[in-house]
Design a protein around this nucleic acid. Structure first.
Length: 313
RNA sequence: GGGUAGUUGGCCGAGUGGCUAAUGGCAUCAGACUGUAAAUCUGACACGCAUCGCGUUACGGUGGUUCGAAUCCAUCACUGCCCA
């Protein structure tokens, strides 16, 4: 099975290219975006315009309904409420099942999105530890101070730092949770399987300066489109707590803070711009290391490349 | 004109004689990251040489006190506030 991936830092035009390719190559899109899975988060996530089609669904664990934009099926968009949790492992499970389904229907899957970790889970066939962490242990671990958690972790496995960043509280918590839930050794966190498809990863990017300019322009556009209102509405309808918004980061975090009166509009705008630029930079750091990306931003070249890839046997 | 508070590294802002190239925050740069990934985390951040380290120049300007000053004194400049 062959699958094309379109990725790149934020604000570089992935979605548009994705749709063009899907149209040209009889494709459907699987979104690899950790925030677009959520309903009611549209402007802030840069979701394509369209809507969920409830007339059919894929019978993958829950029911997955397609989100249709420009006549193209998009999967993994608008599948959860903002209060719900979505992890890489979920993504991998769904995306692989959807890829298969699309192929069965004689169409071509296109993975489109900027969440590098999600993409890597596919291209490298990451195998996530299957130790089940119960709510209880999760809460227990999260209630500990970082120091206690670290001490406990090192007690259970004294070479933990070979496998995780022990300076990162979140990693420490997760590792500890796993060890408390039946995993024997943190080395199990490094397992791979054979990827279920052959992936061609194409990245769209520009020079840093250009990306930053695009980010600023897009930010102002989104604000004009009512992005603040969108987020105020989420709060008003209690779709999310302010803490949850903070967790989402970027527009949701900073506009959330503005909406709850913690910062001024100007502070919000300034912070958003710099934070989004930094995010784009972090994305590039990730792609450089992990994703084996072919960088192209000429549409024609991309089409040729995809064409060639899909034709090869 | 008189009084008063101030002038710190890209910005904000601590520091009131040696432990200070100077806490912290922001910005910037680089990086890590196998179940929160738009999240989370780490490092660098005066200049030069460079391995810890060494050297040089730094806390508005100048001059002084002192073994030693961002820190004390004098003076000049500038800024805020108050009184004329």
């Amino acid at each position: 099975m062959k699958v094309v991936v379109i990725t790149g830092p934020t604000a570089c035009g992935k979605s548009d290219i994705g749709i063009k390719l899907a149209k040209k190559f009889n494709g459907e899109i699987i979104s690899a975006d950790s925030r677009q899975v959520y309903k009611k988060m549209d402007i802030g996530t840069g979701k394509v315009t369209g809507k969920t089609d409830l007339s059919y669904f894929l019978d993958i664990p829950p029911k997955l309904y397609p989100f249709i934009s420009e006549g193209i099926n998009h999967w993994l968009i608008d599948i959860l409420n903002p209060s719900e949790q979505f992890s890489v492992a979920d993504f991998q499970k769904y995306a692989e099942a959807i890829e298969q389904n699309i192929k069965e229907r004689k169409k071509n899957p296109f993975i489109v999105g900027g969440t590098g970790f999600f993409i890597r889970s596919l291209t490298e066939g990451l195998l996530f530890p299957n130790a089940k962490v119960t709510e209880e242990t999760k809460n227990y671990v999260e209630s500990m101070t970082y120091e206690d958690a670290l001490t406990k972790l090192l007690n259970l496995q004294n070479n933990a730092e070979e496998f995780i960043d022990i300076k990162n509280p979140r990693r420490v918590q997760r590792a500890l949770s796993l060890l408390l839930s039946g995993m024997n050794n943190l080395s199990e966190m490094r397992m791979h399987k054979k990827p279920i498809a052959e992936y061609l990863v194409i990245g769209i990017t520009y020079e840093r300066e250009t990306i930053n300019q695009r980010i600023l322009k897009r930010l102002d556009n989104r604000l004009n489109q009512g992005m603040v209102k969108e987020i105020e509405l989420l709060l008003k309808n209690k779709d999310v707590t302010p803490e949850r918004l903070d967790d989402f980061g970027l527009e949701y975090r900073w506009i959330g803070r503005f909406a709850t009166g913690q910062i001024t509009y100007n502070e919000m705008h300034e912070k958003l711009y710099t934070e989004i630029c930094r995010f784009a930079k972090r994305q590039m750091t990730w792609f450089k290391k992990y994703c084996n990306v072919i960088w192209l931003n000429d549409e024609k070249q991309i089409i040729e490349m995809v064409d060639k890839f899909l034709k090869e046997i």
